[in-house]
């Protein structure tokens, strides 16, 4: 039996542009394993000095919340204004708060 021809598994690529900032998703590519995924990411996504560090994750290993959950997941945070410092009144002239 002949094996089905593939273009290799899909990997999601995250690039850190500068020290001290988080890795950011930039796109995806195909690779047979992690080492080649990193090499390919270097060639595909950092050709114009876009990065100093690369993370690769095989796409099938990423789990995502679903759009239907937007209401129950994220809307309850809307009215919790007391989590934000601007919610609190501070008398005029008081500093370092």
């Amino acid at each position: 039996m002949e094996k089905k021809d593939t273009q290799w598994p899909l990997w999601e690529i995250f690039i850190q542009a500068n020290p001290g900032i988080p890795h950011k998703h930039v796109g995806s590519l195909h690779a047979p394993d992690a080492e080649l995924a990193i090499q390919n990411a270097r060639d595909v996504y950092t050709r114009r000095n876009e990065g100093i560090s690369i993370w690769v994750v095989e796409a099938k290993n990423i789990r995502a919340s679903s759009p239907e959950d937007i209401g129950s997941f994220f809307e309850p945070a809307n009215d919790k204004v007391y989590r934000h410092p601007t919610f609190y009144k501070v008398p005029d002239g008081v500093k370092y708060l």
Binding site: K3, D5, T6, Q7, W8, P32, D33, A34, E35, L36
Partner: peptide, 23 residues
């Protein structure tokens, strides 16, 4: 390119990722 893609897949099956990265 088919045999090349197959070779890389076969290699990935044989080797754990840890080994691959250390190579």
């Amino acid at each position: 390119g088919k045999w090349v893609r197959e070779a890389a897949e076969a290699y990935a099956m044989k080797h754990t990722e840890k080994e691959t990265l250390a190579a």
